[in-house]
Write a protein that binds this DNA or RNA. Structure first.
Lengths: 163, 163
DNA sequence: TCCATTTGGTTTACACGTCAACTAATTGCT
DNA sequence: AGCAATTAGTTGACGTGTAAACCAAATGGA
């Protein structure tokens, strides 16, 4: 039931071409605004990005070294991108690389004490930012939002899987 | 409380720390998935990104040359970023620069016939992608989603304004 | 055993966003 | 007129994402 020609004709009369377009715009804009605040928080604490934070969080959660590509898989980071990401974290002594001895192609990454410390310094302000960003929505609204978002991305998940 | 897909998709043993965190992750993930498809469409038609598309769309909408920083303002692109964006569009002959004679600091940008043609080739598949991305949501769902998203980003708009 | 294939990861090239520093033209104040 | 402050725009450095080419180790036949 894709809306066909009818849609084209309606297009110009409304402020938005369609509720779909409006929702899409809202989606992008809202995510953008909120993400900016998180990125800023990460910078204030010595990280360059949320990508770096996510890598650290994954490593802390796992509690032991992980193959680099395993990390990439969990962060949705594409394979070539993970190399530089780990490079920069390693440069800051927040993670460490170690070549696997059994399969010498594999490189393990682990979080260092400095990395763990940085994460723990972030835990509280991060919690606060969550509350600041979405705390004004009721629990029912949050759940409704989550359900709608899940449904919204459903077709994108089916084709082009990942994670 | 319903399980929530995201919990299953991301390997995580614990439920989310809060519905806020869940909503936030859903927000980021959904936007990301949908945007990827639009970026892909733009590439298939010879554009590098949605940023480039937005610049062209603004210029077409205006119908006459605009100062570069005016374009930057409307795209939410930060000042230094717009230069390279216009550079690359100009390299592809999709836009043209022209120095203002009255105020020689100002540089006007306009869309070229090639740019217009590219845009018109994009109109239809873009419409189709909108439908493909969100067409499975009812009108009521779309409106509900938009309202929730608007409410969600409300606090971020208050501090750190921008049109 | 030998060689093609697959797999883990890196390199390179390019587009983009952000920040800081800079140039050039204009405005404003005296 | 003269000079400081503002404005328009560019440049450079860095982090990130994506795609294509690539290297090296491991695997799987024939």
């Amino acid at each position: 039931m894709l809306p066909g020609k009818l849609q084209k004709q309606i297009k110009k009369r409304h402020p938005f071409a369609s509720p779909m377009e409006e929702a899409l715009l809202n989606l992008v804009r809202t995510t953008d605004r909120i993400q900016i605040r998180f990125e800023r928080l990460f910078r204030q604490h010595g990280l360059d990005s949320s990508s770096q934070y996510n890598v650290l969080r994954i490593l802390r959660g796992e509690g032991k070294p992980l193959p680099i590509l395993e990390v990439a898989g969990r962060t949705l980071t594409v394979t070539p991108g993970i190399t530089g990401l780990i490079d920069r974290l390693e440069r800051g002594a927040l993670v460490a690389r170690r070549r696997c001895t059994e399969d010498r192609r594999v490189v393990f990454v682990s979080i260092t004490p400095q990395g763990l410390e940085l994460l723990s310094r972030l835990d509280e302000p991060l919690q606060a930012l969550h509350a600041e960003a979405l705390g004004h929505l009721s629990r029912a609204e949050l759940e409704s939002l989550s359900r709608l978002l899940e449904k919204a991305r459903q077709p994108s998940e089916e084709s082009g899987e990942q994670g």
